[in-house]
Amino acid sequence: MELEVFSAAFMSALFAIVLIDLVLAGDNALIIGLVARNLPKTQQRKVIFWGTFGAIAVRGAMAILVVYILNVPGFMLAGGLALVWIARKLLTPDPDAATNHAAQAPAVSFAAALRTIVVADAVMGVDNVLAIGGAASGSIVLILLGLAISVPIIVWGSHLVIRLVDRFPSVILLGGAVLAWTGYSMVVREPLLASWFEGHAATRLVAAILIFSISLAPWYSARLPEQMKPLVVLLPALLVWMLAFEVAASHWKLQVDYLLANESGEYLLEAVRWLGWLPLAGAFLWLREQFVQRSRRSQRA
């Protein structure tokens, strides 16, 4: 799907790509510095130039490849679900993040340094290219334009990016929300599910709330009081329960609409659909309470 250049949809997708690029950007300068620190001065300059060039080229090639891979049925759904996990990971505080490097040891030769830089960037950039591939809606122009804007900012203006997110941490939350929104739009665009979503319009809303409730869980769980924390699990589980009945109804041709039920089996199914989750929720709360009490006892001991 090619978007009309400078249309609202195009500019929105471009903004999403640049934002995703900024919040998920890896620290290339640190990797290059770590890898090239033991090389002679003359080779260090070459490593910086070719390492940066190779990383950008690999990133661009991977992003374009992702656009084609996402056209394969099933991959759009898998990509959307992966973005939900990426958004959740972005919002989860990680105290050890500053010490996790893709490259720890210095390289002994130019070729080894170059290989390490490119491989490290490719590994760090998998989530990034998947997200921008989804946000670009299949437009190669958008991906290249997005990379042309964000890569110079990341390579030469990394201090600006760090100062921006340090001054406004809400940019990270916005990035998480945009990732969740992109994940949702990828799931509902999945060719294998598109016709099903057309026939079950309300499930799109359930899917949206489910995706946001999972992706943004680290954010809202930090605001919930201790006794409300189980909601982080219960809310998505309840939405999955409801979705499962819709899927079962369309797969086995079951009647799950209470207004159209007229047999005892259909009424029983309705009862299970609307009340069946209550014992499961109760069992979860009881088990959680047991676990919490046991861990408190072991802490005291």
Binding site: A25, A97, H101, A102, V165, D166, P169, I172
Partner: peptide, 22 residues
């Protein structure tokens, strides 16, 4: 390592975000 991990405020955005931004 991501760029945002250089900023402790950004790495812990859910706790450090301003009320207006949130």
């Amino acid at each position: 390592m991501r760029l945002i991990d250089h900023s402790p405020r950004a790495a812990n955005a859910v706790q450090t975000v301003s009320p207006g931004g949130e």
